[in-house]
């Protein structure tokens, strides 16, 4: 199976001096349909790594950083080096889906329009995808409501549908169940993993709740924390 994400020798710095934080990825590869969980306590660099993977945060250095989307291998390290923000925005818009801790929905659009958001920006037809995802995620009867009329669990399920509707190669989820009660968290996480596997989408989920992820037999990548000579915290990821 092809790797959607492939990183070798990529670093990202966050902050300055002794308060600074460095993420070093020795090697990380995520295949299509595979789910990788980033676990560890808060402050262990999960979010910084997710920014890097989500083409939001610039790497400090990168030997190799590619994102393969729609059969095309994109040299992310090169795009950052050229500061080609529009190409990065395009890659984000078409190749990646994001599920956020909360929100992630536009309050002025209906559920249907929210799910179709990325399709619309990519000029893709959306009606069938929206219908299928809404059925799978159990939000069919909510399609014409606005996000404010939904419960938090329902909003997270809509957010998952929104992140997947345009058929991205990679889905990134940052603590997607943190604001849910355990029963809802279980259900939302199960749906997320099931749908991404079924759709052959590579998934990277950051979560502090390892027990929940362990029940779904997810590959685990944990930060190896150490202190550098200049006092900065270094988080190494390999997997």
């Amino acid at each position: 199976m092809t790797d959607v994400l492939r990183l070798e020798g990529v670093t990202r710095r966050h902050g300055e001096g002794t308060a600074s934080f460095r993420v070093e990825v020795g090697r990380l590869a995520v295949a299509a349909g595979e789910c990788v969980a980033l676990t560890g306590p808060s402050g262990s660099g999960k979010s910084t790594l997710l920014d890097l993977l989500g083409l939001i945060g610039a790497p400090e250095s990168a030997e190799r950083f590619t994102l393969t989307t729609a059969g095309e291998s994109l040299d992310v390290a090169g795009l950052w080096a050229r500061r080609d923000r529009d190409a990065l925005a395009d890659a984000r818009g078409s190749g990646i889906g994001y599920v956020l801790q909360t929100g992630g929905l536009l309050p002025f659009l209906t559920v249907r329009e929210n799910i179709a958001l990325s399709c619309r920006l990519n000029r893709q037809g959306s009606a069938r995808r929206v219908a299928t995802l809404a059925r799978v995620l159990g939000v069919e009867r909510l399609l014409d409501r606005k996000p404010r009329d939904l419960s938090i669990g329902e909003r997270q399920r809509v957010a998952i549908a929104r992140a997947l509707a345009h058929g991205p190669s990679l889905i990134l989820a940052d603590e997607p169940t943190a604001s849910l009660d355990p029963a809802n968290a279980e259900r939302v996480m199960a749906l997320l993993l099931e749908v991404t596997r079924h759709m052959k989408v590579a998934a990277v989920v950051a979560s502090h709740d390892w027990d929940l992820l362990a029940r779904h037999r997810v590959r685990r990548v944990t930060a190896d924390l150490s202190a550098a000579q200049d006092g900065a915290v270094v988080a190494r990821f390999n997997g």
């Binding site: 923000r85 925005a89 984000r92 818009g93 994001y98 990519n122």
Partner: peptide, 14 residues
């Protein structure tokens, strides 16, 4: 701010 950041995230340029 959050809505605009979301639009940025899903591919809106400046």
């Amino acid at each position: 701010q959050k809505d605009l950041a979301l639009l940025r995230l899903v591919g809106f340029t400046t």
